[in-house]
Nucleic acid binder design. Structure first.
Lengths: 173, 173
DNA sequence: ATCTCCTATGCGACTTGTCTACTAGTCTCG
DNA sequence: CGAGACTAGTAGACAAGTCGCATAGGAGAT
């Protein structure tokens, strides 16, 4: 459901093939959503079925043919409707917290290792986001500002995570 | 996969029926994982199939029969193995950030509404967590300390979320 | 000439997660 | 006495997400 909306949002920025979409999911969009290739192609087919997008086969000059997808008026309406619809709270799901919750049977060294490994991953995540932001030009229009805003959210979360980790690593000596 | 481990973790604390597990997923565990009844019962069946847990039908004195599940030695080994295994970074998935990212076509009032509604939800979340922590006795042993630690993580995240929201609400006047 | 990598699309099988509805007993309140 | 809430489990359909495999053209390297 949400994936379909996100794809509509991306198609609203520019016409794209499934491959282009996959690249967005792996880069620009990555800090708040990701998707598998198979899933993207299936969703695209459904969007076309539902009349929210159209396909056009573009013969590739120096590459295989692309199926370029374009958002339709109905697609734009659906996107708008999603943006203004009620927020559905999504359930929290955190595999690391799950481990930590049940880590009572680990000894001190094992627990410290668990925390250290998670900290390294969190640090990496933060660095990656900072790198992206550093290479992003200052926002020109509103869309660009919103894009940076979502990045900043990722940054804020990553920093909070690191702070919390430092705090509890001390606490659980 | 992770759900199975979490259920093992819960069974390691005490023998339980599917119903008991469901209550945990809706309360104690809720801030980092949730699960549907059907999913819980299916997973329990698989755990028994795999020899990681056993079932025993307990005739209900003043209620329907319960199927009490008990973790086995192999189950405990599997749980331990999970706790010490490599962390697999789980993909970020945030429907709110997705909306925000594509909210360029909304007008100022609509955008403000979107932010305000999310802020209210985040506030509610924070209040709920604080209520739980307030009603939790100070930790006696290590297990209890870890449980509170995961709660604190939820709290830290919720606070970071609110701070970020306040910041950007000003910014995106 | 072959090998490997990159672009590009798709299928099929599978797992996970959600939703609805049904059965069935107990307890409480009005 | 009946309505509704709580306990307890089951069945079936379906949506979402993952993994592996196949195909196919072009580019560059060995």
């Amino acid at each position: 459901m949400i994936l379909a909306r996100i794809i509509l949002g991306l198609l609203d920025l520019a016409p794209m093939s499934g491959y282009d979409l996959k690249r967005h999911f792996d880069t620009t969009i990555n800090h708040f959503w990701s998707a598998d290739r198979a899933q993207i192609y299936r969703t695209l087919a459904r969007l076309v079925d539902d009349g929210l997008a159209t396909v056009e086969t573009v013969a590739g000059a120096k590459a295989p043919d692309r199926h370029e997808h374009r958002i339709t008026e109905r697609g734009r309406a659906a996107l708008r409707e999603w943006l203004t619809s009620e927020l559905d709270r999504q359930p929290e799901r955190d595999a690391f917290l799950a481990r930590l919750f049940f880590a009572g049977s680990l000894d001190d060294a094992e627990l410290a290792g668990l925390l250290a490994r998670h900290r390294a991953a969190a640090r990496e995540q933060l660095d990656a986001l900072e790198a992206i932001r550093a290479s992003t030009p200052p926002p020109a229009d509103r869309r660009a500002r919103l894009r940076i805003t979502t990045l900043n959210c990722g940054l804020a979360r990553a920093r909070a995570e690191l702070d919390w980790l430092d705090e509890i690593t001390e606490e659980l000596t």
